[in-house]
């Protein structure tokens, strides 16, 4: 059996990269004393996967990991033991036991919701008022970084929703193994639409990960 757990990556540790978060979770699992499963082979490691790597510099409110257990484990016990074993900066919020046949998280991922907090309130106001303007355009060109170059692409079909209130811009953006709109791409395009010359300073918080339910609507990935 497996446990799907929702955890938070706090603002304080937002500069910790994904690999280090993975290792910290593994050590947390080892401290918890929970019966986790290990891979076979020369260097056995804990069988753990993450629905999506969170960028360095971003906070996460509802990140999801998938842990394979060696013995049946109650989700509440998992949650309680893990929270005793983790620093407050990596707090677990929910856990759910699933069958081994439960589809892999990564394959079901469709979108992520974000809260982008703009530090400068004047800039935030300009960005907010530029949202309808930008969304009315037939296409929204943005620069996508590939391994080797910058590529122009249209992010309009990747923006599922976008709104602004005060210093916060909230967005639901496509996130699959094939295509994704990163918050940076969105903010750059929006800053352009708002006529801002300088790059905007903002704090990224990924607030949720989403898949598709049987009706074809976006739904929290951890509940699917």
């Amino acid at each position: 059996m497996r446990i799907l757990a929702v955890f938070e990556k706090s603002e304080r540790i937002r500069h910790i990269g994904h690999l280090d978060i993975q290792r910290s979770m593994q050590r947390g699992l080892r401290r918890s004393g929970l019966p986790v499963a290990y891979s076979n082979g020369f260097n056995p490691h804990i069988l753990i996967t993450f629905a999506s790597a969170l960028s360095t510099g971003a906070c996460g409110q509802r990140e999801i990991m998938d842990v394979t257990m060696a013995e049946p484990t109650d989700a509440e016990v998992f949650l309680a033991k893990m929270n005793r074993a983790m620093p407050p900066e990596l707090h677990l919020k929910e856990a759910r036991a699933v069958d081994d046949r439960h589809p892999a998280l990564m394959g079901s991922l469709r979108a992520a919701s974000y809260d982008l907090m703009v530090y400068d309130s004047q800039e935030a106001a300009l960005l907010n008022s530029a949202i309808p303007l930008m969304m009315d355009q037939p296409s929204i060109p943005a620069m996508r970084k590939t391994k080797t170059a910058l590529k122009e692409c249209d992010i309009k079909p990747l923006i599922y929703s976008l709104s602004g209130e005060g210093q916060h811009i909230r967005a639901m953006l496509a996130l699959t193994e094939k295509e994704a709109c990163k918050p940076g791409m969105l903010m750059e395009a929006l800053a352009g639409a708002a006529g801002l010359k300088e790059p905007v300073r903002f704090l990224t918080t990924r607030t949720g990960l989403f898949g598709e339910n049987t009706e074809g609507n976006l739904a929290p990935l951890e509940l699917l």
Binding site: R12, I13, H15, S24, R31, M86, P87, P88, E89, R201
Partner: peptide
């Protein structure tokens, strides 16, 4: 926090590790 965005290896300076004093 602002300079942490610009610095190399920010985790050197941010703390919050397991078993650090609270």
């Amino acid at each position: 926090e602002k300079i942490l965005e610009k610095v190399q290896k920010a985790p050197r300076y941010t703390g919050g590790e397991m078993n650090t004093a609270v």
